[in-house]
């Protein structure tokens, strides 16, 4: 076999499309031929660089076109619904502020219940009451 033929087999070897005995023959040749060994190493590097290439992703416009064509549903079929938990993870500061505000407002409603004094208020002692103007002694309606 010529080096050209071995180099063709090197590609098949990289593609895992070579049978065992053929692979052995190629490896034996690589052990003896500098040119084919260089070709083998360069082929490996080219493949690695091809794999390193930036991943190409389809733009959102394609989804819009597909929806307009009626081929996919209007809403994203696999999008997960946003939960309160997601919001807390995504926006920790606003979420914390909202929770604090809720606690403050809630406490305004809860405090009268918690700190309500069931005992009727004691009347002022007569000596103190004398100091209060007469018009103010009558409780407001």
């Amino acid at each position: 076999m010529t080096c050209e033929q071995y180099q063709m087999q090197i590609g098949q070897l990289l593609d895992n499309e070579l049978r065992g005995e053929e692979s052995s023959t190629v490896f034996a040749h690589l052990g003896a031929c500098f040119a084919c060994r260089d070709f083998f190493h360069a082929s490996l590097q080219v493949r690695a660089e091809l794999m390193n290439a930036e991943t190409v992703t389809a733009p959102d416009e394609l989804d819009d076109r597909m929806r307009a064509a009626g081929l996919i549903p209007t809403e994203q079929p696999f999008s997960r619904k946003t939960s309160i938990w997601d919001l807390r993870v995504a926006f920790p500061l606003p979420a914390a502020a909202s929770i604090a505000l809720l606690l403050i407002i809630g406490s305004l409603f809860v405090a009268p219940v918690l700190f309500h004094d069931p005992q009727p208020q004691q009347e002022f002692p007569p000596d103190v009451l004398q100091l209060v103007p007469v018009e103010l002694r009558t409780p407001r309606p």
Partner: peptide, 21 residues
């Protein structure tokens, strides 16, 4: 119809990359 949408989502990037290149 949701099955086609999933098939589309799965393969759209590969097909777009193939066409763009």
């Amino acid at each position: 119809p949701a099955a086609f949408a999933q098939l589309y989502q799965r393969h759209k990037h590969a097909l777009y990359a193939f066409c763009l290149r």
